[in-house]
């Protein structure tokens, strides 16, 4: 029986790679076929931090678009948020920062990280170094790739560690 149980929600625009990041973390696999997520899927994974087990309940929420933002009812009870953007579509970073600012007003004491995903697509990359540096001054930021697995495991483990620290 894990010592801790923590809920983590992934938030971000559609097609930024939230489902792929979760699949990479939970199952260690990647598929480049894009399929829109509708509704919610909760995946579970137990991680061990310094000999203590933490059950992560990872909530994959449908991506925001011009028609719908994330339903706040889904966020209740969260200990952590991962705000995900697609580095090849800079507008997705602007959108998720705006969405995060709204969410953090409702959940001021949570562990968070911003993920700028698809770092493997260097040729199509749009988010500038300046924008990343500016964001890093305010929030933790990681450049991830669900394709290669870059920074994916590290992100979830670091968030889990922080959530456990906060709950002590």
């Amino acid at each position: 029986m894990p010592e801790f149980k923590k809920k983590v929600c992934l938030i971000g625009s559609f097609a930024v790679g939230k489902t792929s990041l979760i699949r990479r973390f939970v199952s260690g696999v990647f598929s480049d076929e894009y399929l829109t997520t509708l509704g919610v899927k909760v995946d579970q994974k137990t991680v061990t931090l310094e000999g203590r087990e933490v059950l992560l309940l990872v909530w994959d929420l449908a991506g925001s678009d011009q028609f719908a933002k994330v339903q706040q009812a889904y966020l209740a009870g969260s200990s952590g948020f991962l705000f995900v953007a697609d580095g090849t579509r800079k507008s997705t970073l602007d959108d998720v920062v705006e969405e995060a600012e709204g969410i953090l007003k409702l959940f001021p004491v949570v562990s968070i990280s911003f993920l700028i995903n698809k770092v493997d697509l260097a040729e199509e990359w749009e988010v500038t170094e300046e924008r990343i540096s500016e964001l890093k001054e305010r929030y933790p930021v990681r450049l991830t790739s669900a394709l290669t697995g870059d920074e994916v495991e590290e992100t979830f483990l670091s968030l889990a560690r922080e959530m456990v620290e906060v709950s002590r």
Partner: peptide, 20 residues
């Protein structure tokens, strides 16, 4: 219902990605 709504939403997202 999921299959029906997902198809519509997916198609709308693909159109948006193509537009971008």
């Amino acid at each position: 219902r999921h299959h029906f709504e997902q198809q519509i939403l997916h198609s709308s997202h693909i159109h948006e990605l193509n537009r971008e």
